[in-house]
Write a protein that binds this DNA or RNA. Structure first.
Lengths: 126, 126
DNA sequence: AGATCACTTCAATGATTGATGAATTGATGA
DNA sequence: TCATCAATTCATCAATCATTGAAGTGATCT
């Protein structure tokens, strides 16, 4: 690995309390949830489930996608506890895990939907 | 592609208002922000920046990593407007883009840090 | 101006990831 | 019980991603 500069000699004071206060498993878990959300197809699927509890074949038909494609996506979301499933007759219905998930998605879409900000924003924020 | 079942014949009523109300670009942008957050190394780096505005070589030295590794990570975060940079003398200092980012990270870490929930949680929520 | 320093960009590599058809599971209905 | 249907799992392939050393950039200092 390349050598790091030695600017620490110049005595940058640091307070690492918050950074150190989380366990490795916490970072791992939080990152894996974000990763599950970080795919356009999965995010659209989650948004769809805000208004409608739906079965797998419905979702597949609605988007013209394969069953296994949709099922794999739902598996990823289930593993992160973003959705829950429920069998009813021949169908398995999926819905969002809880209201916290709804808030997370709507919040993100709300921010992403805003117009591009001015270049000066990063400076003006202080 | 495999054939979809035809359960739509069974007449599932749907209301797609919210799902349809977002533009493709909105989903794309929101997903790409989540994707940037969905990497453990980047998430740790962001958390570090909550308490400390830091220069690249400081970060690298703190974790025993290469300069270019850290610089590439910061580039990804910059592109999603999660961090801002500022030159001061020989150093370039990085900090979080705004307080909204701080809230997003702390919220996610807070949830991820909770103890594993009971199996019945998904049922009990209704 | 020339040298040095902090950082960024480039390019190559290995590791993950998402989509997909085929095979499988498990519940339902004849 | 046997056939059917919805959904899942498996295995493969292409595409994307993170890391890393080397080369490049641009500001600072003498």
């Amino acid at each position: 690995m390349e050598r790091s500069p030695v600017c620490l000699d110049n005595d940058h004071p640091l307070q690492l309390r918050r950074w150190e206060s989380y366990r490795p498993a916490t970072y791992e878990k939080a990152a894996s949830v974000f990763k599950a959300l970080g795919d356009e197809a999965r995010l659209r699927l989650l948004t769809l489930l805000i208004d409608n509890e739906m079965c797998v074949s419905q979702i597949a038909a609605l988007n013209g996608e394969g069953l296994s494609t949709v099922s794999q996506r739902l598996k990823a979301l289930r593993q992160e506890e973003l959705v829950v499933s429920r069998r009813e007759g021949k169908h398995i219905y999926y819905g969002l895990y809880d209201e916290h998930i709804t808030g997370l998605i709507l919040n993100a879409l709300g921010h992403a939907g805003e117009e591009p900000v001015a270049v000066e924003k990063a400076v003006a924020r202080r």
